[in-house]
Computed example of a mutant assay.
Amino acid sequence: MSRRESPPPPSPPPPPQLLGLRRGELECDDRPERTEPLSDAEREVIQDTWGHVYKNCEDVGVTVLIRFFVNFPSAKQYFSQFQDMEDPEEMERSSQLRHHARRVMNAINTVVENLHDPEKVSSVLALVGKAHAIKHKVEPMYFKILSGVMLEVLAEDFPEFFTAEVQMVWTKLMGAVYWHVTGAYTDVGWLQVSSSAV
């Protein structure tokens, strides 16, 4: 290359690892192994850091959903209200997307508030899983992807609270959430539901 030629543009960064799932890998794996229960110290870390996030829950939720839909547009097929939206600014203005963002954040808030009560957490996540399996017919791997996107956004938007150690604890929590949700899919016979819907 001569000195007058401009250097080639930098290559885009590699897609982020989202709880072990890379962009474009959309197959549904077997149910993951159950993670170790959270320790008292880990529960405290999650509740402390969540307090900072939840003060801005709607804005954080909207940011998470916009990134989720921009990076994984196939997920929009489950949302007739905004499946045709391409522009992130249009998504941000969507009252339906804001409503769903609040629901997602409130579900996580219920989990975080009840970390001391595993039965309550399990029942809340079973309801979420069953609704998404039976009513909405959402592929369970989207929960894994959404968890990874949420972890990215929290680390970027709250760097002073989401240190590497805190991110590890949150990854453990999101793994537990995914385990419970996929359990609900298994309980309702997801494979039969999804194959009969074809």
Rank of each mutant, 00 (worst) to 15 (best):
I66Y: 01
W179M: 06
M168D: 10
Q17D: 14
L146E: 10
Q83K: 13
Y142W: 15
V62M: 00
V198F: 15
H180I: 03
S2L: 14
V121H: 09
H180P: 05
L97S: 13
S74F: 03
V138R: 11
A75R: 15
R23H: 10
F161V: 00
D48S: 12
Y78Q: 08
D84V: 06
F69C: 00
R102V: 06
L127I: 01
P32A: 10
L115A: 05
L173T: 09
V128T: 10
F68T: 04
L21E: 00
V124M: 06
Y185D: 06
A101D: 11
V121W: 07
D84G: 12
T163H: 12
R23T: 13
T182A: 08
A75S: 15
R23W: 12
K55F: 12
S147D: 03
E58Y: 01
E25G: 01
E139T: 09
V198I: 14
N109D: 09
E33R: 13
L115D: 06
E36F: 03
W190R: 02
W190I: 01
R4K: 14
L125H: 04
R93V: 01
P16E: 12
S147N: 06
D59Q: 04
R93F: 02
L21D: 01
D87H: 02
L26Y: 04
E89R: 03
K144N: 13
L127V: 00
P12C: 11
N106S: 06
E25I: 02
V112M: 06
V138H: 12
E36Y: 02
P8W: 08
D117T: 12
I145Y: 05
Y185G: 08
S95G: 05
E113Y: 04
S74A: 09
M1L: 07
A155Q: 15
E113G: 02
K76N: 00
P88E: 02
F158C: 05
M174F: 08
I66D: 01
E86A: 09
V128A: 07
T35R: 13
S194Y: 08
F68M: 09
R3Q: 09
G20D: 02
E36W: 03
F82P: 01
P8T: 06
Q192K: 14
V198P: 15
S2T: 12
